[in-house]
Amino acid sequence: MEEIKASMAGNVWKITVNTGDEVKPGDEVVILESMKMEIPIAAESAGTVESIVVEEGSFINEGDVLVKIQS
């Protein structure tokens, strides 16, 4: 199980995967919006999206879990 975490504090701008999607390492799963910048967050390992922990528009802090991937 991989927990994809926020690399920095900001807002969840877009969630680009759905539960059940297959992802490869490097695939973008969430785009954060922070400091007026788009911050793409990618999966580090291959697997299936098990759950999406956050909602679009919510504030997240650095290190907060965004998405869980079942490998």
Partner: peptide, 10 residues
């Protein structure tokens, strides 16, 4: 590096 954390300085 805008590709990482928007290139923001930490």
């Amino acid at each position: 590096q805008p590709k990482q954390k928007g290139g923001v300085l930490f």
